[in-house]
Each structure stands twice: as structure tokens, then as C-alpha cells.
């Protein structure tokens, strides 16, 4: 589904991704771990199409298409969803309005009619129940005045409504208490299917207790330096990132 080869990207003069290779197939859940500043968010943003990052080498294919050719909105409509590490507050834009606009943008791309208003509300309420979100969040400004946990749940709500082929969740678990973490994990697990793939960017092994990954990768200084199954996450938890870095250098 997603095929990243030798990806190099920078922002201004700073090289951040330095030859990153990652292959994600439908049905798989990948976890990307790594110390602060290693380039995890950069990877997520580059895949989503953020224009501040300049891709200087390598390639990214998504469902057989050259992803780097596409504008961010086209990538989203093709089925990529980025759950932001720092969701943006947009006062004056109603949460329901954004959800509906996003759903309709995708439906239009698929040649479908706009979603019926009743259908939309029903779907939104269903997904909110799964995430244990109060329906009143629909009528608030996008992320406006939301707590950290509410913002993360709101990201998962958008994901649940859009049903992407590939979801990249950037530290969706950070700052969540245990109940919120479980709710978020519920939302993610509900999306798991043989047709979809999920990339979890995370700092902690904690999330992986609730969402079991098929693969775990360690990112350091813009490269994947080690890959393994979920036992790698446990090992990291015990031994720290220094251990992988030393092993990689040896």
C-alpha cells in the first residue's frame, strides 16, 4: 500500500530524513518509535504533503501512485489520513461542518453524491459513542478550547468518519489518561481491516498494549535503524534507545 524508498527530506537547510525506507501492506499495523527529534513527525507530514518540507531524494508510492506528485488534499481523498501530533484550533469553523466537508470531499472524489444530512448525523453520533465523546462537540469550533485529550479524540473521530485506507497517527497517545487511551484504541481497532493499514507513531510502548502492531521500527536521525515485531517495543522500553543506536552502529 505504502512504499517509501530512500526518502530524504529537509526543512530549510536542515536535513531531517536521511534515506528512509519503509514498506506497509494492507492489513498491517506498524509502530514507529524513536527519540524526540528523530524525524517521526517529519515523516508523517511529508507523507501527508506538507509543503514546508522539501523532498530531496527517494520516492513514495501509495496504492501504486506517485504520492509526491499529489497535493495534500488529493492525498487525503486518495485515502491517507494524518492524525496530527498538534491538532490545530480553528475558531469559527464548526466541528460538524469540517467533518461534513471532509467526508463530502472524499465522496466527490469517489464519484458519490454528498452525504445526506440525516445519515451524516447518525454516523457522527455512532462514531462519537464509540469514542465516548459528547455529541455537543459537533457544534463547537474545531478543537477550539479542547483539552489535549479532547483534541486527540477529535482526530480519531475524523479518522473514523473518513475511513481511510492508511491512517498515520502521530503521537495520538501522548497526554492521554488511561480512559482516553482506551477510547482512542477502540477507535483505531474498529478501523483495522484486511484492506487498511495503520502507522502508529509513538513514544511509549503503552499504546501498543491496546493496539497490537505487526511491526515495530526504530527511527533515529532520519533513518530506520532497526525493525522487528512487537517484542522490539518491549525491549526498547527496558533498554532505551541508546541500546538500539549502539547496536546499529556496531
Amino acid at each position: 500500500m505504502l512504499d517509501i524508498k530512500d526518502l530524504q527530506a529537509r526543512i530549510g537547510e536542515t536535513e531531517i530524513l536521511r534515506g528512509l525506507t519503509l514498506n506497509v501492506k494492507a492489513g498491517e499495523v506498524h509502530a514507529i518509535m524513536g527519540p524526540n527529534g528523530s524525524g517521526k513527525s517529519t515523516l508523517a507530514q511529508v507523507v501527508a504533503g506538507h509543503e514546508d518540507y522539501e523532498v530531496t531524494g527517494g520516492s513514495v508510492q501509495f496504492k501504486g501512485k506517485d504520492l509526491l506528485e499529489l497535493a495534500p488534499e488529493e492525498r487525503a481523498r486518495e485515502g491517507i489520513f494524518l492524525g496530527f501530533q498538534y491538532p490545530v484550533e480553528i475558531p469559527g469553523v464548526n466541528n460538524a461542518y469540517l467533518l461534513k466537508a471532509a467526508v463530502n470531499a472524499k465522496r466527490q472524489h469517489q464519484g458519490l453524491d454528498e452525504i445526506d444530512a440525516f445519515e451524516f448525523l447518525k454516523l457522527a453520533r455512532e462514531k462519537m459513542a464509540l469514542l465516548e465523546m459528547d455529541p455537543k462537540f459537533l457544534n463547537r469550533g474545531v478543537n477550539e478550547g479542547f483539552s489535549g485529550g479532547e483534541k486527540k479524540r477529535n482526530e480519531i473521530l475524523q479518522m473514523a468518519m473518513l475511513e481511510p485506507d492508511l491512517a498515520i497517527l502521530d503521537e495520538t497517545d501522548s497526554g492521554l489518561d488511561i480512559d482516553a487511551l482506551k477510547a482512542v484504541a477502540n477507535g483505531v481497532n474498529a478501523l483495522r481491516s484486511p484492506d487498511r493499514a495503520i502507522i502508529l507513531v509513538t513514544h511509549y510502548q503503552r499504546l501498543l498494549d491496546y493496539i497490537e502492531p505487526d511491526f515495530v521500527h526504530v527511527l533515529s536521525a532520519g533513518r530506520i535503524i532497526r525493525s522487528g515485531d512487537k517484542s522490539l517495543a518491549l525491549e526498547l522500553e527496558k533498554k532505551g534507545y541508546e541500546w538500539v543506536r549502539e547496536a546499529a552502529n556496531a
Partner: peptide, 28 residues
């Protein structure tokens, strides 16, 4: 706000639409 623009585009909303939405929100 460039961050808000990217956020909306990352949800599938075209750049001109995202601009329109944010301008209206500002006035609303």
C-alpha cells in the same frame, strides 16, 4: 493561518475551499 490551511487540506478540502472557509470563519 498556514497551519489551519494545511490541517483542512489534510482532510481533503481543496486549497481555495480551505481559504474560503477560514476567511468566513474570521468574519463569522
Amino acid at each position: 493561518d498556514e497551519r489551519a490551511l494545511f490541517y483542512l487540506r489534510a482532510r481533503g478540502i481543496s486549497k481555495p475551499d480551505a481559504k474560503r472557509i477560514l476567511t468566513r470563519a474570521f468574519a463569522a
